[in-house]
Amino acid sequence: MATGKIYNFMGVRKLALAFSLILMLVSIGSLAVNGLKFGLDFTGGSLVEIGYEQPADLEQVRSSLQTAGFQDVTVQTFGSPRDVLIRLQADHDPKLGDKVLQALEDGSNQSLELRRNEFVGSQVGEELREQGGLGMLLALFMIMVYLAFRFQFKFSIGAVVALVHDVLVVLGFFSLLQVEFDLTVLAAILAVIGYSLNDTIVVYDRIRENFRVLRKGDAAEVMNTSLSQTLSRTLMTSITTLLVLVALFYFGGEMIHGFAMALLVGVLIGTYSSIYVAANALLMMNITREDLLPPQKEEGEEGEELP
């Protein structure tokens, strides 16, 4: 067996470890210092999107709103210069959208259009944040159980370490660049979990197989063989997924920009992590051939030992 080129992936594993650690530290640091720029879904408040016929003058929008007595207003363009997004920490007011529209129409000679008007109570936002975090933890836990059952507990820990790595880096990315974090981004992060896992499992599957098939070579060599064998698949799938994500990023419109961005970052980092983090984690846990033999009995037992 074993034809084709074998790359020495594990040769640079110390470097990869350092790189991953730095990425994670930067992410955690940024999350601690900057935090996430939560969107309306999570903070609560009101938002009004107004469509202009010509590019809008934001200064004028601000002053019109101030004259009309709106306090605590953030004004920004959304996607195109003709789209204006206004965020208010106002109380709930059924006529808010129309009032804002009225105020802006008075100070402008264009005909405006109320495109979107959202209000989220602060309590709802808080619950969503809580649920989002819980959902992510639950997903990680369920996946860990499934993997411990199908593979072995070291594999499930390795996979979850890779996932935590990916999620942290994507969160860190959003925190560093202060890109708005809304519900669709949260959905994207869960999709990243799914995707990155998919990648990791394909690699693990091959590692498991090679531990059984290859009679010689230490663990690192088995990793290298497995990673090299799955490399073209890993790249192919990443490329096709990235292709559609790029399409989504450029043509999908402003409302799913954050979503596409989270997935782009996530797929890139997920591809990297399935090679360097997931396999590396196995080596650091001293995975041996014996861990997988005899497979049936041990898999079952380990699965049940998990909390």
């Binding site: 999107e49 469509g51 709930h92 059924p94 959208g97 259009e113 109320l114 495109r115 979107r116 008007n117 959202e118 209000f119 989220v120 109570g121 309590q123 709802v124």
Partner: peptide, 12 residues
């Protein structure tokens, strides 16, 4: 009482 409201215009 209203805890969330979202209005989307038809053109959007």
């Amino acid at each position: 009482y209203f805890v969330e409201e979202r209005t989307v215009g038809p053109s959007l």
